[in-house]
Design a protein around this nucleic acid. Structure first.
Lengths: 398, 398
DNA sequence: GGCGCTTTGTCCTCACAGTGGAGAAAGTTG
DNA sequence: CAACTTTCTCCACTGTGAGGACAAAGCGCC
């Protein structure tokens, strides 16, 4: 039960910790190449980190033509917890300090059951992972993503549209008590963006957008390598941008919101309607006993060549693409990542998004703009969550 | 002919220079209150700045109950040039190091005449200001705004839609040669945003948007106090966001761009059409011999109560408001500033923009969101320009 | 194996940024 | 004119960090 208590004493140490997190075991010489400090100073700081126990010796590395170097690495017993709460399921993962996922569990649930019930399930999953020996000493930190706006400094959801019972629930404080470790809470979309930035397609891109299409639609915004959360924590909430002046009624009360026209939920509804109207035998054959379909059913039908499903996906892609085109003109990102549950719709969706964006935005903004699917899938969120908390812990203590 | 050659030697000196720029003459004690340095260290740095000549003694201040303090200030002979190139006119202003405007000239012109002709006029205005004794020793730095995207590090316009002849013209290099001082070039909208941030409505706001509606429409984006320019320098180019799927043909080749439906130019065209169709006697009476109108004519007609003009303005406001609503949802700013030539349309325009934004965006994003007119008018751009160059010069030399 | 060359890591000295306190200088107030 | 404030300077002391010398450890070649 040895927990991480120490924190880096200065910016140099913080920098070194992050290099070790992102680059794995490293020799003093390799660290020196990346950090612009004299060798002597660097040795001093590394020694201090060794003293704290955050960093340990890791044997000798192979020679590169001279004396073999003594590697150091982050303490291998450090454990971090990533929790990603979606609208319809929870993901929980345990990582070491290098953010390698040691164990990952997923469970369906309904976020509308409220924070108490949901966190009971999440903590249960975390306990299972611990019970399998992955985190014998408990956790040194945890990151949590929730599907709605968060007042980041306090770690409290504010006015979340799809999870009314969560408004004001002190997520950070409650979980910090339960887990006995530091906790940080953020919007799930922001965490997905951070995950892709750290380990996915967005490595080494400073400014990018990460559009997550699941039950709802959100967008992570990264500016200069940092997540932009906005004044009230609601930045990236693009699901309620109006795409049709007199369009469908949305749960938020407005008409024609993007989310009402396309999202995992909207797609399933449209597919059900098409199936019931007899437009698609392929879809009808997939109806469950209650007459319901999911986005995954549509993806499967599309993969089987069902024209109705393909048309629905294309139309949805056009809608999202229309909004993304606007955002690209406005924000001029270096990359757009598409992720979330509907990535199962794959390249049909991507193609229609690309068409819209490349057609509508100015060539200067789209000239060298990749629009790609996220590559981490369900691990993006939990990876981002542990990145978030380690970023915090690997900073000089306030 | 004494030019500023020295640059601050370290971050402390840079910080002090900016404090003196923004706060005017200050005593060492007052500076110490703002800068978190010991008095002794601060005295050393101030002395070094005095040695460079960037800072000079400025006499004794009034006593605050003890020994009177020796004020210091930025050298009063420092002169900066701000140039703001619009689509239809140039603004040129001279400021001291405290960014007080000592002289300001404006001249109509047409950017389509190309960079050589335009800068000839701009330099002519600058020479006039010099001739009137405002900058006997020449300029210590200049900032330039152009109405299109700029590759900022090089100071070169790229693919500017409304000024084709400017693509790739080395503005920074050319002007730096002509003026014999450091020059920085940016998008005019970004400079307006910086101006309002420094001296206008956006003081002390970290994240805000500054929408400039003139001949075209653009948006300055400020994130964490810094202008966001995007990957290729085209961030904020919202004029070509599509607002109507099968809308009017735009100069850019697409259909339904915001700019095609509302901007200074579009408003004038609509007003002309209405006048010619006999819908408004008020507007018809303002037609010039060529049958042309300007946005200012529409503003005047609206002020006189002309219902056609008011309707045009309202409809335009709705269009812009629709786009801004989307940006607000996406970006979650703490303030939206409306500026540019059409601010003459005043509160009629503002009201319809506000209506759209407050109706379409989520309450969390709009709850405490002021939407206001810029307060600097034509001086915003030139102030931003001199802020840009002094920010650069008051930074530690690279 | 001996020798030169390379890489890695440690040790030592020096420069200097920065702190904090003492005290001088220059005011105000009673 | 004494007591108190505020401002500014001077000085001694501390800790950070750079840079060089040197030791340790490895490779390759003769």
């Amino acid at each position: 039960m040895r927990r991480m208590t120490a924190r880096p004493a200065n910016a140099h140490q913080a920098r070194l910790l992050r290099l070790l997190r992102d680059g794995g075991p490293n020799s003093r010489a390799q660290l020196g190449d990346q950090v612009d400090l004299s060798r002597s100073k660097l040795a001093v700081e590394v020694d201090r980190l060794l003293d704290t126990g955050l960093v340990v010796a890791d044997g000798l590395a192979a020679s590169r033509g001279g004396r073999r170097s003594h590697n150091v690495r982050l303490a291998p017993e450090l454990r971090f917890l990533g929790v990603d709460i979606g609208a319809t399921s929870v993901d929980v993962a345990v990582t070491n300090a290098e953010l390698e996922i040691l164990g990952h569990l997923n469970q369906p649930m309904d976020v509308r059951e409220g924070p108490v019930a949901v966190f009971e399930q999440a903590l249960d999953l975390a306990a299972k992972l611990r019970a399998s020996g992955l985190a014998p000493g408990g956790f040194d930190g945890a990151g949590v993503g929730v599907p709605g706006p968060v007042r980041f400094p306090e770690g409290v959801p504010v006015a979340p549209p799809i999870m009314p019972g969560w408004d004001g629930f002190p997520v950070r404080e409650a979980l910090s008590q339960d887990l006995g470790c530091p906790v940080l809470v953020d919007n799930d979309v922001n965490l997905m963006a951070m995950g892709e930035q750290h380990a996915g397609v967005a490595r080494s891109v400073g400014d990018f957008l990460c559009v997550k299409i699941g039950t709802g639609i959100g967008c992570g915004i990264v500016v200069g390598g940092e997540v932009h959360r906005g004044t009230t924590g609601s930045a990236g909430d693009i699901g309620h941008i109006q795409v049709e002046p007199e369009g469908r009624l949305c749960a938020c009360g407005n008409k024609g919101c993007l989310e009402a026209h396309f999202s995992g939920a909207a797609l399933a509804r449209d597919a059900e309607a098409a199936a019931r109207a007899g437009h698609s035998l392929e879809l009808a054959s997939r109806l469950d006993p209650d007459g319901r379909l999911t986005a995954a059913d549509v993806a499967a039908a599309a993969a089987a060549g069902d024209p109705t499903s393909l048309a629905l996906i294309r139309e949805g892609g056009n809608r999202v693409g229309q909004v993304i085109a606007g955002l690209v003109s406005f924000f001029n990102p270096g990359l757009v990542v598409i992720g979330g549950g509907v990535t199962g719709l794959g390249h049909t969706l991507l193609a229609s998004i690309r068409t819209q964006v490349y057609r509508q935005s100015l060539p200067l903004a789209t000239g060298n703009l990749p629009i790609v699917l996220g590559e981490l899938g369900p691990t993006a969120g939990v990876t981002g969550a542990t990145l978030l908390i380690t970023n915090h812990l690997f900073s000089p203590a306030s």
